[in-house]
Computed example of a mutant assay.
Amino acid sequence: MNRSVFADRKVLFAVATFCCLLWGSAYPAIKIGYELFAIAPGDLPGKLVFAGYRFLFAGLVLLVFAAFTGRGAALSLDRRTLGQVTLLGLSQTLLQYVFFYVGLAYTTGVKASIMNATGTFFSVLLAHLIYHNDRLSHHKVWGCLIGFAGVMVVNFTPDLLEFDFTLLGEGFVVIAAFVLSLASIYGKRVSQHLDSVVMTGYQLAIGGAALLVGGLAFGGQLTGFTVGSVLLLGYMVLLSAAAFTLWSLLLRANRVSTVAAFNFLVPIFGAALSAMFLGEAILEWKNAVALVLVCWGIWLVTREPAPAKG
């Protein structure tokens, strides 16, 4: 697909917003999935099996799609490219989601969606170190500081006397965001010589298979298959396939910091949908302040005009 299409500002905004809506919906969907499949908070092997099925099937859907849309030649990978997509799958899918799924089990969907916004700032900082045309500026530095301040606010108790942060909960979500930032930048490089649909399909399938094998090896299982739980799993498969592919196309055609800035929509969608489907509190003043600070920070990051391609 012509990458110039995804460099268009209107297309960038529409596609990035859609991706963030899908990822925001994953927060309540995962928690509902834990209930439907009877996965206890401490059942890490069960969480790995759940995630494994999601990403393995998402990857297979994309590879089948690639085969039926004239990308058959791209499905055959040489040893070097296979090694690259394997590394991408083990980092972006396996490692990231081990931290993410565990963290989400020990915090609320609202807090997790806001904590995950740290990935935006990690991406901006890493892009500065890697790309000569994506350097930090005065506005970007202030944007990162204000955004991190917003992340800190959401972890205080309402009376501001106690900092509510746990390693297994909020800490693991932040680690997952950092891993995703690193993997996304690496994925941008791989996508320069490999079709984005094929790349995403392989990395999701490889990472998903690793999650599934690891979960089963430690005694994990997935029970409680009903029409509702299967439909939920199917939705999560499709959201993963669509969001990761579209995001890869955006990263391929634009600067990392430009695309990453749209992640501010994920905590907004995640918080709103968690409140809607899980009944979690979204109207607490600290959540509102945190979201305002995060959005303000990313507005500063993207304030300076930037070329469409990086």
Rank of each mutant, 00 (worst) to 15 (best):
L212W: 12
R189G: 12
A210R: 03
L182V: 14
L231E: 14
S196G: 05
G207D: 07
V266M: 14
Q192V: 07
L265S: 12
Y202A: 03
G220C: 09
V230C: 11
F244K: 04
A241S: 14
R189P: 01
A271V: 05
S240V: 00
G234F: 07
V190I: 15
A253N: 11
F264L: 12
R252E: 09
G201E: 10
L251E: 03
L211M: 13
Q192H: 13
V266E: 10
N254I: 05
L250E: 08
L231G: 13
L232S: 06
G207S: 10
V198M: 01
F269D: 04
A243V: 02
A260W: 05
H193N: 13
Q203D: 06
Q221F: 08
T200Y: 08
Y186A: 14
M236I: 10
Y202F: 15
G224K: 11
A260Q: 10
A217R: 04
L246N: 01
H193S: 15
G201Q: 07
S181M: 09
V256D: 00
S191D: 13
A210N: 02
K188A: 13
M199W: 07
A241Y: 11
M236V: 12
Q203I: 01
F264D: 01
I185Y: 07
L273G: 01
G224R: 07
A183M: 08
R189K: 15
L233N: 09
V227W: 12
F262R: 00
G234R: 07
V198P: 00
V266W: 00
I268K: 00
T200K: 06
S240I: 02
A217F: 12
Q221S: 15
L212A: 02
G224V: 11
A243S: 15
L231N: 09
L233G: 11
V237M: 14
S240R: 03
T245S: 11
S196T: 15
Q192T: 12
G219E: 08
A242R: 05
A205Y: 07
L246I: 02
F264T: 01
V237T: 13
G214M: 13
A183H: 12
Y235G: 14
F264R: 07
F244R: 06
S257M: 06
L250K: 10
L231C: 12
Y235V: 06
A261R: 05
F218E: 13
G224A: 12
L233I: 15
G201K: 10
L194Y: 03
S181L: 13
V230Y: 03
T258V: 14
L239N: 10
N263T: 10
G208K: 12
L238N: 04
A209Y: 02
V230L: 15
L232P: 05
S240D: 02
F244P: 02
A243L: 08
S229K: 03
G228D: 14
G234Q: 06
L265K: 05
V237Y: 06
A241E: 03
I185R: 02
G214C: 08
N254L: 00
I206M: 04
Q221V: 10
A209M: 14
Y186D: 08
G224C: 13
V259R: 00
A217Q: 08
A242S: 12
V266N: 11
F218M: 14
L249C: 07
